[in-house]
Design a protein around this nucleic acid. Structure first.
Lengths: 132, 132, 132, 132
DNA sequence: GTGGTCTAGACCACT
DNA sequence: GTGGTCTAGACCACC
């Protein structure tokens, strides 16, 4: 379910983080569902186990998954790390600005941009997650 | 006019590229306007000249600026590098997706997201660039 | 300045984190001072560079140090990560409780415990850091 | 009476050890009192019996409890394992230092720290255990 | 079985 | 020169 692009400038472990978050946002992975083990996933992606492990640790740090010692790793209940949120919110806005600037440079109209945004929004399960 | 954050995870040269593009998008820098020289800018930003040079090369690669030997560097007329556009357009959509995923994970509503988008859009000069 | 105990149950990278924090708390390392490079320190401690790197990343995550790309890593200005604090404060209290419980089990008197606390407190520079 | 946090970085068996010690320090469990059996406790905590067994072994190693073959496990008379004490005393001081360092980094004042210490001290039954 | 840690050694981007 | 990433393969504690 995850595609690795070896030639991307994003580190592999970040690609895994990214796509795992997408899978969870889309609802492909549900709360409390077990993720594939580090070894499994590394074999499947043809990637070193350490690299997958690093991704999992990063996802855990972000509160997206939890690891239960000796049992495996699971999709976390969405409870939102209390303090982290503000920081990540700021980060989000900075990234949004970058994307908007890029769009302007490419001559994308505001209307087109909103359409694209909606398309992406819908890819991730309509109106889930909104209620919190 | 450019602010460098030494401890950002974005390379310094990318920060320069990014902000230069913002300045042009905002219209602070106009077509055919001359940019400061590498030496000037590096002195001003307290950054290694190599780093500034790298930014200019990247901006040129993207068709945003042009360097005229012996004369200096100038803001390019738009449509300078038609071939690049497809690539950058794809890149834009990828980044947009990432931002949307992040927003969903943080529980941002579609409405809020659109509002933010509009705010950013307005920061860069209303309806310029739309007609092409 | 750092002592590694290979036989400790604390991971090596945690020992480095721990002791680096002590050095900074004691004032041996000052704000903005440059840390030894990953390679240097790894050679000195007879430890793999990856292990030292992991320590540095953890220290950065905690806001204790900052890394400047291509320049090195430096002791951070103490500005206290905004959101993290509450979490770490709770963690601190939990650890304090554990230590107190252990002391009670060993029959240490309250007075003795306070004396030890004061000794440790003095080891780290008397009254520095208190004003914030 | 014992709470297990599956996702703590402390091993589950250590959590049991820790909390059992707290119960004894608080006087909830008295000298010579019988502990629940491994099977009982494991069923109650929804934890693997092996894990509970490991906790009991550790508590016995520390001289906190004793197992009498065929009879069960009991809270030991204090001073059961005199040789262990030096080791645990050193460990205690190391941990105390860690906590103090952490407190300094978080900008906690000496006074506040003492107050917290007293609070924890009082949680565990005033002045018991002092006389020995 | 699980994830966590460590080593050895390589390559890369950034300054 | 710096730190960041990745691979290969090993060992360990925990469940």
């Amino acid at each position: 379910m995850i595609q690795i692009n070896e030639r991307s400038m994003l580190p592999i472990y970040e690609q895994i983080v990214q796509q795992m978050k997408e899978l969870i946002a889309k609802g492909v992975m549900q709360e409390n569902e077990k993720l594939p083990s580090v070894r499994e996933l590394s074999a499947q992606l043809l990637v070193n186990p350490n690299t997958v492990a690093k991704s999992f640790q990063e996802l855990e740090r972000q509160g997206i998954i939890v690891t239960l010692r000796g049992k495996g790793t699971f999709v976390a209940k969405r409870t939102a790390a209390p303090g982290m949120e503000r920081e990540r919110m700021d980060h989000l806005q900075t990234e949004l600005r970058r994307v908007v600037v890029e769009a302007r440079h490419l001559g994308v109209s505001r209307e087109q941009f909103i359409i694209w945004t909606d398309e992406e929004w819908k890819r991730f399960g309509g109106d889930a997650d909104v209620n919190r």
